[in-house]
Design a protein around this nucleic acid. Structure first.
Length: 243
DNA sequence: CCAGACGTTGTT
DNA sequence: GTCTGG
DNA sequence: CCAGACGTTGTT
DNA sequence: GTCTGG
């Protein structure tokens, strides 16, 4: 699944990477810093197609904005449960009340360097924190949804998940849905009401991910920094060979 | 017609 | 917002 | 997702 | 065990 991830590219780099603009300053383009330990309710960069804030009748343009991770439906009475809707299952997203309008009209991309899973250890207790990231170092784009809530138009987002595929089955039975570059434009096209056909995992992309064991520090959301994604030896690797 | 509900995912 | 229940 | 908290009563 | 906070 996807409950913790990494994004270190600056908003300007993301704008270039995704051929988007971004609104420096103001509510839509609030400051954002690289984060090696993004947790639910944190600020996250997203890419969406929308008229610029304050230009409601202007053309829809592709933009990088900073959202809060954890979708708040427009009809929610408050934002207290904001940390709950961090993921939406691809299998049900079109039907569920919390997501169905967003998947029709408010799709976004969620840029990431990679994400974490806590993988079962076949030969030991506990779980192994694992960082998943493209071998190429290319940016990932998770399929996402967004909502605008309340008079201040609070921007919140969610990441779509699907059944784990390929080598990722060893780590977890769910995974974020990573969209290949050729699908970005279609996913962001607000004129397209049904984009569910794009919610198919790209197996080549999945197999070009590195599964890197990392230390336990990532578990605590107070920790951050590049040290979190440094490779460690797993207990199995560190143990003397038995028999 | 109005009132009221409706949040999801993943885990063991 | 949209659907369900009454 | 993980880490860490989670005290009750009576009162306004 | 379950909920909250990050």
């Amino acid at each position: 699944m996807c409950g913790r991830y990494v994004a270190t590219r600056g908003l300007d780099d993301l704008a270039a990477e995704f051929e988007a603009g971004f609104e420096a300053g103001g509510t839509a383009g609030s400051a954002w810093r690289p984060d090696h330990n993004i947790a639910p309710t944190d600020a996250v960069p997203v890419v969406l197609t929308r008229h610029r804030s304050g230009d409601r009748d202007g053309p829809a343009v592709r933009q990088v904005r900073v959202a809060r991770w954890g979708l708040v439906p427009s009809w929610a009475p408050d934002t207290r449960r904001a940390g709950k809707l961090i993921n939406a299952r691809a299998e049900t997203v079109a039907e569920l009340p919390a997501f169905r309008s967003a998947v029709r009209r408010r799709r976004c991309l969620v840029p990431a360097d990679g994400w974490y899973e806590w993988a079962p250890r076949p030969d030991g207790p506990g779980r192994q924190p694992t960082y998943l990231t493209p071998l190429s170092g290319e940016v990932l784009a998770f399929a996402g949804l967004y909502e605008l809530w309340g008079p201040d138009r609070l921007l919140t987002s969610s990441i779509i998940t699907t059944a784990a595929a390929g080598q990722l089955v060893a780590v977890h039975h769910r995974m974020p849905l990573v969209l290949p570059r050729e699908s970005w434009a279609a996913w962001l096209d607000p004129g397209r009401a049904d984009a569910t056909d794009l919610l198919v995992p790209d197996l080549g992309l999945v197999d070009r991910l590195e599964l890197r064991p990392v230390g336990p520090a990532v578990g605590n959301v107070a920790n951050d920094g590049p040290g979190l994604v440094e490779r460690v030896r797993t207990p199995a690797e560190a143990a003397p060979t038995l028999f």
